[in-house]
Design a protein around this nucleic acid. Structure first.
Lengths: 122, 122
DNA sequence: AGCAAGTTGAGAAGAAGTTTTCATCGTGGC
DNA sequence: GCCACGATGAAAACTTCTTCTCAACTTGCT
């Protein structure tokens, strides 16, 4: 059976409190505020479990370690701050794409990444 | 001084003939048709050189090894075939984004990846 | 409280892509 | 054609991220 441990609670809370996609390293740092002894292996194990159980979904980015965010949000995209490396969620999607493709191509989905500076790094 | 070798010519030609972004592995396979003894280390060395000299630019994608494409093209995006893994260039950019950002965010650029099936994989 | 079984932390190990090492080869200037 | 020096190929090493191992610890049930 799956147990509720201090570590798992701390990791879940980290996501709810951060309100943005987190990398395993960020999860480690945030959750250590509550459970200082927390190890990286536990973070990875727990992330894996939370993805399988449907609480989180992975967010893949080019040349960066994956982030994770609470699942169940609608279609949206992300913003990566070039200074601090934090990822934020962008609500909605204005992309009217998936029409002007060359013949023979069939679109099944898309990802948009916006790069720039976040409010913290102005 | 920088020499013109069979290997480097083969790698350059691979890009001109492929007409799409190539991964180091793809470069190896294509260029080996002309220089069968070609090694992966040479591919990486040459790619690095071609990027520095401005002939190629890297194309980073989420969870995939970087592709490279001839530099100097205008702003455009890419299509990744989920079956064969090939990347194609999409001309133009319909993205009217970079306006509806939350306050405090400053956009400096963006990337769009479209996923689906390419003509080869229908 | 007692205990079986799941969980944890630290370090080792693994995976995947990229770079370095080094002996040998090839290019281009003379 | 000669030769210095850059380039090559194969394998080892390296990076970065992720997973595994295992002894020690917790949790949840009784």
């Amino acid at each position: 059976m799956e147990r509720s441990t201090r570590q798992r609670r701390a990791i879940r809370e980290a996501f709810l409190e951060a309100g943005r996609p987190l990398s395993p390293q960020e999860v480690l740092e945030l959750a250590r505020k509550k459970v200082p002894s927390l190890g990286l292996a536990t973070v990875y194990r727990t992330l894996k479990g939370l993805v399988e159980e449907g609480f989180l979904t992975p967010v893949a980015l080019p040349g960066e370690p994956s982030r994770y965010e609470p699942a169940g949000k609608g279609h949206h995209h992300h913003f990566l701050c070039r200074l601090c490396g934090r990822v934020y969620e962008l609500l909605g999607c204005d992309l009217a794409l998936e029409g002007p493709l060359p013949p023979g191509f069939l679109a099944e989905g898309h990802e948009v990444m916006v790069y720039g500076r976040c409010p913290e790094c102005t």
